[in-house]
């Protein structure tokens, strides 16, 4: 018996070690650091209790980053969800060109967003092709990345471009899983037009997929970092300084490791709430 259990520990040892080193220990260390005033520019540090957390509520920079992130999420979520669903439903019943459309819409997902951000930068540039086109038709130039009012929309546009294809594929998978005989039964019952079909069959049957898309998209929206770092560095005037970018700034630009760790823990908490939502609802919904 003892030998047997020893084998078990032995076999799970590598995996457990890796999980500890990669996930658990760093998280615990970050949690501990978040209660200190540790910075990279001083040798010693002191425990300051919840001071870092308390500071957040009065820190305008942090509150700004939180609201920026939420506004960004509120733009990306409904548009990304709605468009993905719309495209999925429109190409689902197409026989011809279906796979062509799928490839077309899915292409951005496969590309590296960091590289593509540079392409977008060129497109959205004040003298880029989009502005050239606008001025050609007599319009005013738009400072896509240079105006505090517009920059979040521009970033949302780029994220949407990269995420819609992914949502579409998820919805397509969800649509495929709806048994065709339900639509047959619906036709006999009089569920004929597209609107009724959507309300009575497609939408309720897609509920698990929808939940999954909504939650993963929310998490992704909160994790926005790469295109901000490449295109705007949080500017202009903190207009695009989202949560994760602020955390990065505090840690590696201002060296405030204690505060940055506290931010990370809060971030972890938010993601955890979404993950919990997903686990609760999706598991329930699947069983109807």
């Amino acid at each position: 018996m003892i030998k047997k259990s020893l084998t078990g520990y032995f076999l799970s040892f590598p995996a457990v070690t890796l999980i500890l080193i990669i996930y658990v220990i760093p998280t615990v260390v970050v949690l501990l650091i978040s209660f200190t005033d540790y910075t990279l520019v001083r040798d010693n540090f002191d425990f300051v209790g919840g001071e870092n957390y308390a500071k957040m509520f009065t820190d305008e920079v942090f509150l700004n980053s939180l609201s920026t992130t939420i506004i960004y999420a509120l733009i990306v979520l409904p548009v990304g969800f709605g468009t993905g669903l719309f495209i999925a439903i429109s190409i689902f019943e197409k026989k011809k060109f279906k796979s062509l459309f799928e490839v077309f819409y899915f292409m951005p997902v496969t590309s590296t967003l960091t590289a593509m951000a540079l392409v977008w930068n060129a497109l959205l540039d004040p003298i880029g092709i989009i502005n050239s086109t606008i001025t050609f038709f007599g319009g005013e130039k738009i400072a896509f990345l240079g105006s505090g009012d517009i920059v979040l929309y521009s970033l949302a546009l780029i994220s949407l471009w990269s995420i819609i294809g992914f949502n579409m594929v998820l919805f397509l998978a969800g649509l495929t899983a709806i048994p065709g005989h339900l639509y047959d039964a619906g036709k006999i019952d009089g569920i004929n037009n597209s609107f009724d079909k959507f309300i009575y069959i497609t939408w309720p049957m897609l509920a698990p997929t929808s939940m999954f898309v909504a939650v993963t998209n929310s998490i992704n929206a909160f994790k926005l970092f790469d295109i901000v770092a490449i295109l705007t560095q949080g500017g202009p005037d903190r207009a695009s300084e989202v949560f994760l970018y602020l955390t990065y700034l505090e840690a590696f630009e201002y060296f405030n490791m204690g505060y940055a760790s506290a931010l990370s823990i809060v971030f972890l908490g938010i993601i955890f709430v979404f993950a919990l939502l997903q686990a609760r609802f999706i598991d329930k919904k699947v069983n109807y």
Binding site: P179, H181, L182, D184, A185, Y200, I201, P204, M205, A207, Y288
Partner: peptide, 10 residues
């Protein structure tokens, strides 16, 4: 129908 085709969400 063979597999009943009841609306599972209703």
């Amino acid at each position: 129908f063979q597999d009943y085709a009841l609306y599972p969400h209703m």
